[in-house]
Design a protein around this nucleic acid. Structure first.
Lengths: 226, 226
DNA sequence: CTTCCTTCGGTGACATTGTCACTGACAGAT
DNA sequence: ATCTGTCAGTGACAATGTCACCGAAGGAAG
């Protein structure tokens, strides 16, 4: 059950609650709960069974896989208004969660119990449409990740990552090499080496905990082929 | 519109048609079509827009990605009673098909136009349940592929692949090195080298176009850690 | 301010994997 | 018996992953 204030937030956030007195809005108000999770919290680990579905109201979550050697690979992030496809898939098929989800920035989320989640799908077209869209969109992100790790060179991927994470006005990224490695599913050493190449080519400048793009155009070229 | 014979096949194949005179069965009979595709046909290419949804009645389809260098990576296969999650996702979100699907063995499939596919989801719970289960199941296969290519050593993956594709009674696999490479997203040369190692270790015997497992137990060990 | 300590990054060595170029072996067709 | 296309083996090299180790930077504690 949501309070009046939480409910106001929910309506502003979720398109399927747009109409004030429909069945889905009543159900959501009664069956959803607001949960807070502190930075660093682990939401799901590899192999967990999912028991509820979440929609983020604020904060940020990172969903990633981790290999035997400890290497990490970020699959995607969740921000305001977003939900996790793996949780949905997990709930629908009663399988185990195949990754890890942790809180990067303190999270407020609407939590819907498994039974409500399933029931709403059969009952409320708006909810159903929301879930289907979610799945279809996130699935393409995952497919893009597959493509990247299977076929793309790492210098190209790092160049793309730096470009995505910056813009012409804010050319400095506050990231450690380790953080970049974990995004791309590689190791710190490799990131360091490739950034060193970039520095040699005057594409970027690096300092402890930051990378500054010096020649955006050249970096774009590097991101395209090489 | 399906013929009587085709309809009989459909009922035997698809659980959601179990009840003889419901709305979904009438809709399916009128709006589905049976299509045949010869071996080697390309069903979808990277970037295609999907316009229909298929359920295989017979034959086999391989869905794979292909990199700039021409290297291939098999995502999954479809056989009798199965459907393609990427097509579903594609139809739901109107995105482009992010892979390639080709016919490995001559296919007969029930084809459902995009409009029917979407309409049925909103109308028929049995169809909806079928699609959701499909998505959830295939998504876990794709996640397993991500895990493999990101983190697992190739000798381990080849060992697993050989074990999956054989059994103690039928120890010989009729596969070229190229075919194995394409399954696992690597190159023929690398497969050849690793198989050569396996031969040195007396795990397998190789001949032109085939691999015979000699020491299944040892291969299992190789598939577990190394 | 100095010292300590943790985090961050650099480096060399080596193993694994991917790519390229080339070669020869095999099997079916003529 | 020869031809031809497919299949497999090899060496060289590049790219990436892993390990061990080191030093530098910056904050914390004295």
């Amino acid at each position: 059950m949501l309070t009046e204030a939480q409910w106001t937030e929910a309506v502003a956030l979720l398109p399927f609650l747009a109409h004030p007195d429909t069945a889905i809005t009543r159900a959501f108000r009664h069956e959803a709960m607001l949960m807070r999770l502190p930075e660093g919290a682990t939401i799901f680990s590899e192999g967990d069974a999912c028991t509820s579905f979440s929609i983020l109201l604020s904060g940020q979550v990172r969903v990633f896989k981790i290999g035997e050697t400890g290497r990490e690979l970020t699959l995607y992030r969740l921000a305001r208004g977003e939900s996790c496809i793996l949780t949905a898939s997990c709930l629908l098929s009663e399988r185990q969660f195949p990754a890890i989800a942790t809180v990067e920035q303190m999270v407020e989320a609407f939590v819907i119990p498994q039974t409500s989640f399933q029931g709403w799908i059969d009952t409320y077209p708006a909810w159903r449409a929301y879930i289907f869209q979610l799945i279809a969109q996130r699935l393409s992100t995952v497919m893009a990740v597959v493509d990247e790790i299977a076929f793309r060179r790492l210098d190209v991927r790092i160049a793309q990552f730096l470009l995505r994470g910056s813009d012409p006005l804010q050319a400095t990224l506050s990231l450690t090499h380790q953080q970049i490695a974990v995004e791309l599913g590689t190791s710190r050493e490799v990131v360091s080496r490739i950034l060193a190449d970039f520095v040699d080519d005057r594409l970027v400048r690096v300092a402890r905990g930051s990378v500054t793009i010096l020649d955006r155009q050249a970096l774009v070229e590097r991101a395209e082929a090489s």
